Measured scan of single mutants.
Amino acid sequence: DEEIEKWIETLLKRNISLRVNGKDLEIGSEEFKEWVEKFIKEV
């Protein structure tokens, strides 16, 4: 979905790490990609 890709790009540009389930996810890491894929499937 384009919306999500733009959102991810924005996050990448800002180099933010997300806190997911109490863990810091490094943007661009494998864990982050897995989380994004799960997130996309749920939406």
Rank of each mutant, 00 (worst) to 15 (best):
I27W: 09
E37F: 04
K6D: 10
E34C: 08
W7Q: 00
N21A: 06
E34P: 00
E30T: 11
E31C: 09
S17R: 09
E34H: 12
V43H: 12
E42F: 11
E2P: 11
R14L: 15
K23R: 11
T10E: 15
I40V: 08
R14K: 14
D1R: 15
G22E: 06
V20I: 10
I8W: 12
E3S: 14
L12R: 05
W35H: 01
K38S: 07
I27V: 11
W35R: 00
I8V: 06
F32P: 00
E42D: 07
E5Q: 13
F39P: 00
K33I: 11
E5W: 15
F39K: 04
E5D: 11
D1L: 15
G28T: 07
N15L: 15
E30Y: 07
K38H: 10
V20L: 08
F39W: 10
S17P: 09
E30D: 10
F39Q: 04
V43P: 03
D24K: 13
F32W: 09
F32T: 01
I16G: 13
E37H: 06
F39R: 03
N15Q: 07
I40Q: 03
L25E: 01
D1P: 12
S29L: 10
N21Q: 10
V36C: 14
I4V: 08
F39D: 00
K41G: 04
I27P: 13
K13F: 03
E26Y: 08
L18H: 02
D1M: 14
K23T: 06
F39T: 04
K13A: 14
E26W: 09
E3I: 13
N15K: 14
S17V: 12
K33E: 05
W7V: 04
K23S: 07
I16V: 11
S29Y: 07
L11E: 03
I27K: 05
E26H: 09
E2N: 13
R14S: 15
E42Q: 11
V20R: 03
K13V: 12
W7K: 02
E5T: 08
E42G: 09
L25T: 02
N15C: 15
I8H: 00
K13T: 07
I40C: 15
S17M: 05
K33H: 12
D1E: 08
G28I: 05
E9G: 01
F32I: 03
I16E: 06
F39Y: 08
R14A: 15
E2W: 14
F32S: 00
E9F: 00
T10K: 13
V20A: 04
F39N: 03
E42Y: 13
G22N: 05
K38E: 11
N21I: 07
S17Y: 00
R19S: 07
G28D: 06
K6L: 06
I16C: 15
L18N: 00
E2M: 12
R14C: 13
L25A: 04
G28K: 03
L25W: 04
K38M: 09
E37Y: 06
I40M: 07
K23Q: 09
D24F: 13
E5M: 14
L25F: 10
V36Q: 01
D24H: 08
E30W: 06
E9M: 02
V20T: 05
E30G: 06
R19W: 01
E3D: 13
T10D: 15
D24T: 10
K23V: 10
G22A: 03
K13C: 13
W35P: 00
E2A: 12
E37V: 08
E3C: 15
L12M: 08
G28A: 07
V20S: 06
K6A: 10
L12S: 03
E34Q: 10
L18G: 01
N21M: 07
V20Q: 04
N21H: 05
